[in-house]
């Protein structure tokens, strides 16, 4: 089970929009559900699979190679080892059986954000998903709602464009003057932005979001969360914050979110995305910014 604690900042106010009323903390509920799900999955007895082989069904597509132009699934049987992840199994399949099997990966430790795939029907990082927690055969597909380049590789350009659209850089210009003087920041404020700073740009959230699938211009949860990180950081002045909120409350911004929580459910970094989006909506209302 994940040991992550979801701290509710004490500065938090009651939710202002109808969807959020009533439920004490839907965020909390979702996260608990997510943890339960994980706990159940992990209770699959490891000895069931140990010493046996892992059955993978992997999506294949290559626009130029005959036989791969029509998407298909290839099956691989990989020897199981204790602690094996989906990424380990894919690497084994590639190195031992088919060197053309293509997928992004690098760090093997859930920090580079390269290997978000659609595994058994949900968005997960290959390197952070234990084989022992999955039903077999394990279906590995590229992230839905993104164009497939080849096999498990999707085109990330749209995702990057959205990330860049929120002016994702610190804009405070009025800095302390003394030599080697840092800006001061309250521990509490740092704590408040902490979860939002953990995003690894994996794109799982965006891929899981129905709204993003229907509205190509929707900023999407990751970009909004990136903006949240700056907007809630007390080191930036009020007017910068207001500028940020204006970017966010535009037609394809925060108001598109219908609090379906799919992003929050899949985020491998457990970022309370929906909660962050809701909080930004409330901020926009507080600031009397026009909304759609």
């Amino acid at each position: 089970m994940s040991t992550q604690q979801q701290e509710q900042p004490d500065t938090q106010e009651a939710p202002a929009d109808p969807e959020m009323k009533g439920a004490e903390s839907p965020q909390q509920e979702r996260l608990e559900k997510k943890e339960q799900g994980l706990a159940e999955a992990e209770s699959v007895d490891e000895s069931d699979v140990e010493g046996e082989s892992v059955h993978l069904k992997v999506f294949r597509y290559d626009p130029e190679v005959s036989g791969k132009q029509e998407p298909r699934f290839d099956e691989f049987h990989v020897p199981f080892e204790k602690g094996m992840t989906v990424l380990d199994a894919l690497i084994f399949a590639r190195d031992e059986f088919d060197s053309s099997l293509t997928f992004r990966h690098s760090c093997r430790q859930a920090i580079c954000g390269s290997d978000a795939f659609f595994i058994n029907g949900s968005q997960r990082l290959g390197c952070k998903t234990q084989i022992s927690a999955l039903q077999q055969p394990i279906r590995v597909e590229p992230l839905p709602h993104q164009e497939v380049v080849k096999d498990l590789v999707v085109d990330m350009d749209h995702f990057y464009d959205q990330m860049h659209a929120v002016e994702p850089y610190f804009q405070q210009e009025d800095l302390p003057e003394g030599e080697l003087e840092e800006q001061r920041q309250d521990r509490e404020n740092r704590e408040k932005v902490k979860m939002s700073t953990r995003c690894i740009w994996c794109g799982a959230c965006m891929s899981s979001c129905n709204i993003a699938a229907g509205d190509n211009q929707y900023l999407g949860p990751a970009a909004i969360n990136k903006a949240y990180k700056f907007a809630m950081d007390e080191r930036e002045d009020e007017e910068i914050k207001e500028h940020r909120l204006r970017i966010l409350e535009q037609e394809h911004g925060v108001w598109r979110c219908q609090t379906q929580f799919s992003c929050t459910e899949v985020c491998p970094k457990d970022i309370p995305l929906t909660e962050h989006i809701q909080e930004l909506k409330r901020e926009a209302v507080k600031k009397n910014l026009k909304f759609w």
Binding site: Y169, F170, E182, Q183, R184, R187, R190, K229, R235
Partner: peptide, 22 residues
């Protein structure tokens, strides 16, 4: 020291002490 403070000025979320310093 100067380079580390530059990172702070660029918004890097360092952990903080009670007095708000990194």
């Amino acid at each position: 020291p100067e380079e580390t403070i530059s990172l702070e000025h660029w918004g890097m979320p360092f952990s903080r002490e009670d007095d708000g310093r990194v």
